[in-house]
Structures are given as C-alpha cells and as structure tokens.
Simulated assay, not measured.
Amino acid sequence: MPSHELAVFETPLGRVVITAAIGGDPLALVAARVAMTDDQRESRADWWLAGDVHVCLRTTSLVDVVGVSWSADELSPTYGERTFAEGVRAALLTVTAPGGCGRIELRAGFAEHRSGGWATGQDLAARSFAAGATEVVIGGGDDDLFARRVRDGSFPADWATLLVPDQADTVFGETGRTVHIPEQLTPVLGRSDDGVGWMLPPVPPGASVDLHAVVAWAVGPGAATAAWYAVDWSPDAIRRACVLRDT
C-alpha cells in the first residue's frame, strides 16, 4: 500500500482510499505508530508533528452497530423485501494542536476512478456509486454539521464566521455540489468526483478537532437508501464505537 494511503476500505465496487493532509503536507503511514485489533476490524495510526501537533486516524467497522435496512416498497403492509447495509467502514481523523496548525484535509475516494453523483442530506455530504443492484455511498459532515459543532464547542469559536450553514466552503468535489472548496483554495489531496473531500480552516492554538468519513454498501432493491442512511454518523458516535485506547 502506498505510504500516502492511510487506510483502504474494500467494497464491492473497488478500493476506497483514505488520505489526509495537515498544513498542506500529506500524511504518510510510514511515519505513524500503528495499532490494530486482533480481528483487524479496527486500526489506529498516530503522528506527532512539529509544534507538538498530535494527529490520530482511527478506522473501524460499524456494520454490526448500524443494522440499517430499507424496504423496496415501504408503503406496503409488510414493508416488502428489506435490504440491509452489508458493510460500513469509518475513518475518524482527530487533530490536537497546542500551538495551532494549518488547514486540515481528509479525503475518501476510489483508488480506480469511478464517477459518482451527489447524495447530500441534512448534516451529510455524500456521493453515491452504483453498479447493477450494488450501491456504495461515501459520506461525512457538511457545512450545517460543522456550523453546529462550532456552536456546541466541538470546533473552535474562532471558526464561527468561517463555518456558516449553507455557505461554508468545506466540502469539495466536482459539479453538482451543494457546498464546495472555492477554486482559489487548492486542496492538496485533489478534486475528483470519485469520492468526497473535506477541508477545515487553520486550527487555533489549544484546539482539538475531528473530521470523519464513512463508506457503506448494500445490495438489493433498497440498496441506495440503506447505504445512504448507513453513512450518517457523527464523529462522537464513531469514537464511542472504537475500542483501541488513546495513547
């Protein structure tokens, strides 16, 4: 696995790769301390960067936690044939910066290019990818979620004027997006419709912030909706599902 690929989630439509960058510098797995559960369902990578910046990337499987299903005919008395998400994988990036640090980027996208369409929702920025009866959705927070995290203290108060609902330039991809990174801010991790990327502003001293990405897939008549609901997680819920201890 190339060192810039921090995690790889195998899906029925191909490999989804997780990458990240801090202050314009992509993270490399070879520079991290890595731990993994015995069943390999969860991993953790830790970096200690200049300025006492600590970066932690957790990945975990959530399929046993989610149990998301959707009916192909939800209006029928028996709710028709139910389709469950068959796989749900999450990545949670946590950056703690006592002295502050530059912009944070996180991206989840297919290793081999595959075009997807936007499937956004409330608090959710997502792309969906389909082949036959199989649906894969890649998703994470949107500007509304980020603005709320400023208000509840999860994000720095300094970001209040930067992360505004329905206006914040936090999620980027290609055309059809509801929120985006403007062209004058070039993401180090690139732009493509094969996934979703996020960029947060420079982190002020003393702050700790999270970014997350979730990949889910389902097969069957209700696959699109089952996978879509299965990516709708908060960073706090992902952290509670993880078992590897802080270092």
Rank of each mutant, 00 (worst) to 15 (best):
C56D: 01
G109E: 15
G190D: 07
F84W: 08
T178P: 00
D142I: 09
A227D: 02
T178H: 05
R15C: 01
P204Q: 11
H180F: 11
S234F: 09
A125L: 08
S192D: 15
L185N: 04
G80L: 07
L189P: 14
A130R: 15
D158G: 08
T94M: 03
S61I: 02
L75T: 05
A241I: 05
V203T: 13
V34P: 00
A35S: 13
P182G: 06
A157K: 10
L244H: 03
T78K: 05
L75M: 08
T247E: 15
Y79W: 07
M36W: 01
G14E: 05
P77R: 13
P235F: 06
L189K: 09
L124H: 05
T83E: 09
E183T: 07
P165G: 03
H54Q: 10
S76V: 00
E74C: 01
G195E: 14
V30E: 14
V68F: 10
W118L: 10
P156Y: 09
A85D: 10
A168I: 06
G102D: 06
P187N: 02
T178K: 01
Y79H: 14
V63R: 08
V63A: 11
R151H: 06
R107P: 10
E86G: 12
D169H: 10
G190A: 04
P187G: 03
D25V: 12
L6D: 03
V68I: 14
G197K: 04
T134W: 02
G222Q: 03
L92I: 01
L211C: 13
V188A: 08
G67Q: 15
D64A: 12
T161Q: 09
A91P: 08
A230C: 03
A218F: 04
P2V: 00
P2Y: 00
D123I: 01
S76W: 02
Q184I: 01
Q167K: 07
D152N: 15
G139H: 08
S3T: 05
A126S: 13
P221D: 09
Q167L: 13
E5R: 02
T11L: 07
